[in-house]
Design a protein around this nucleic acid. Sequence first.
DNA 1: GTGGTCTAGACCACC
DNA 2: GTGGTCTAGACCACG
Lengths: 133, 133, 133, 133
Amino acid sequence: MLINPADELPIYRQIMRQITEAIAGGKLKSGDKLLSHRELSEQLVIAPLTVKKAYDELELLGFIETARGRGTFVAAKLPVPDPDADLERVRQTARRLLAQAYLAGMNFEQVREILADAHEHLIGTHKSEKEKA
Amino acid sequence: MLINPADELPIYRQIMRQITEAIAGGKLKSGDKLLSHRELSEQLVIAPLTVKKAYDELELLGFIETARGRGTFVAAKLPVPDPDADLERVRQTARRLLAQAYLAGMNFEQVREILADAHEHLIGTHKSEKEKA
Amino acid sequence: MLINPADELPIYRQIMRQITEAIAGGKLKSGDKLLSHRELSEQLVIAPLTVKKAYDELELLGFIETARGRGTFVAAKLPVPDPDADLERVRQTARRLLAQAYLAGMNFEQVREILADAHEHLIGTHKSEKEKA
Amino acid sequence: MLINPADELPIYRQIMRQITEAIAGGKLKSGDKLLSHRELSEQLVIAPLTVKKAYDELELLGFIETARGRGTFVAAKLPVPDPDADLERVRQTARRLLAQAYLAGMNFEQVREILADAHEHLIGTHKSEKEKA
DNA sequence: GTGGTCTAGACCACC
DNA sequence: GTGGTCTAGACCACG
């Protein structure tokens, strides 16, 4: 996990995003234990409160669960809040992706390639991650 | 043009995004005149300064040019700032798109379809829209 | 004479600057006749009022004189308004020049060379200008 | 830092110029913390938004970076936008400097001296200032 | 009419 | 505390 203090996105949101992306990509599965917010804050060299806030919001959203005294875990059943809203959000991101790419002089085919690369990057590195756990 | 005051994204950024997307999709071309920031603010029912801020930043970024007393126009030569940074930004957006989609239960093939739809939506070739209906 | 409508500097000021620079460089001398504001506006493809405003202000500043019915001429005795203020303005411009150059990665010696070039550019083209008159 | 509300140059540009000049002269270095826009606005007795606008534009131009909740800092890697455009801008400023000086009755040698003084003033090596006294 | 600048003041998000 | 956004309204400069 890496965070960028200079990023426009707040640090706690960067943490949230990386955890949800890890779940989406299968790198984190239901029941997996997360680092304590204290451990993670040391590792990232940021304030513990910042990690805590990220975990709190992830819990509110249903992605993780806290077991007092035992730790924090990826939720057993992940949230599927609102299919329609999700679809619209994905569409918007797709439009933004294309606009960025076209302004950078790329064409549709190049975007498809980048997307395929990202797909492998997100999915394809499972095996070695298991050994880490 | 439509803005959503409740959106997480600031209003002035929503305006910036829509204008850059219109440029990316070819709906706005070099030399095209934009609405004055006052007109647009009336249309959107927001403060003129909010539109002006969007225009100011777009100008600093090189997308539009202003001529005092005459109006605001799409820049003659659009910016091609930093190819490397651009590629990385597009990659990040691609990763975010996939993460969003996978969390919503979609698969890679569905993302590709959504992307193709977005491509046509951005470019404005309405033929395929008919098939959707 | 060339003007740039996209420049931050108002058009009438661009005209003023170019005329005073021509005087400073010796390309225009006391008594030389200027184009009428109508002629100049045609040549520059701008509104006559814009040229008129530049001439008006130059007259107020004492650089040119209008003889009704005969035309506009470079003033017989050019203004030397306030030596102290002039010195300070020149100093400020010098500081700005250096800051621009240093931020662009140049060093002091390079600035001196550019200045020497500009000196020749401003002064050195008299002879051919005389033939134009 | 000093600003002059009566100056032709907008206040926010005066602030921008002074900060970029401080960077050019080495008085501000990468990573240095700037005053918060509120503090600086109190110091200069102007509206906070005016300082903020200066900071915003400097950030878009790449000179400074902001970290929400922590402050504003001189950028780690300063921008080196367009060498060609930079050279031309420096040349224009050099021409303007000479025109101003010649209209004030100075000669080339005097301009060179003023430039040398400005160089030392900008860099802040105070040795030669003693000799001036 | 256009854009450009500045103000005073509010509310929010982040650390 | 920091920066981020938005508002309402003023005045000026430009063409």
